[in-house]
Simulated scan of single mutants.
Amino acid sequence: MKFKQLSIFAVSAIMASSLLSVSALPAHAAASDAGASNAATSKQELKAQKKAERKARRAKKNAELKTLEQNGYNPAGNQTDYPQNLQNAQQKAQQKATGQKPASAP
């Protein structure tokens, strides 16, 4: 008999706790939705910031490549003298930027 009363008490306690959790669920859901929208906004801002950084790096790389090409470097050209060709173009670009006269060829 005592076991039957104890099991009825346990079942009613479980039902009461489930009812309490169901009534608190909409409030929790609303709070988590607000947090989710803030997280989504910060994710969007982070994504936009990363995209802007990628575009800036790409623009810088393309500008450097254009400068090197204007100073004689051809990335699609003959690669037998690759490091020297690139270094010569870098040296010419640096000399133009500082206003120095390029050294005469030997």
Rank of each mutant, 00 (worst) to 15 (best):
T67H: 02
A27Y: 10
N38G: 14
K50C: 04
A36T: 11
A27G: 14
A36F: 10
R54G: 03
K66E: 15
L46V: 10
E53A: 11
A24R: 09
N62I: 11
Q44C: 09
K50Q: 13
A30K: 11
A27K: 08
K55T: 05
K61G: 09
T67F: 00
Q49C: 02
T41E: 09
S32L: 14
S42T: 11
A63T: 06
A39T: 07
K51V: 04
A24F: 12
A31T: 05
S42V: 12
A31N: 06
T41D: 09
H28F: 05
L65D: 02
S32K: 08
S23M: 15
A59Y: 00
R58Y: 01
G35N: 12
A52P: 00
A27F: 11
Q49L: 08
A59P: 00
T41R: 12
L46C: 07
E64Q: 07
A63K: 08
A52K: 06
A30E: 12
A39Y: 08
L25M: 14
E64S: 05
A48H: 02
N62Y: 07
A56Y: 01
H28S: 13
S42W: 00
A40W: 07
K43T: 08
A24V: 10
H28E: 14
A24L: 13
A34K: 13
A30R: 09
S32E: 15
D33P: 00
L65R: 03
A34M: 08
N38W: 05
Q44H: 11
A52T: 03
P26V: 01
A31M: 09
A63C: 02
H28L: 09
L46R: 11
T67W: 00
E53P: 01
K61L: 11
K61R: 15
A40Q: 08
K51G: 05
K47N: 13
K60M: 06
K60A: 12
R58G: 06
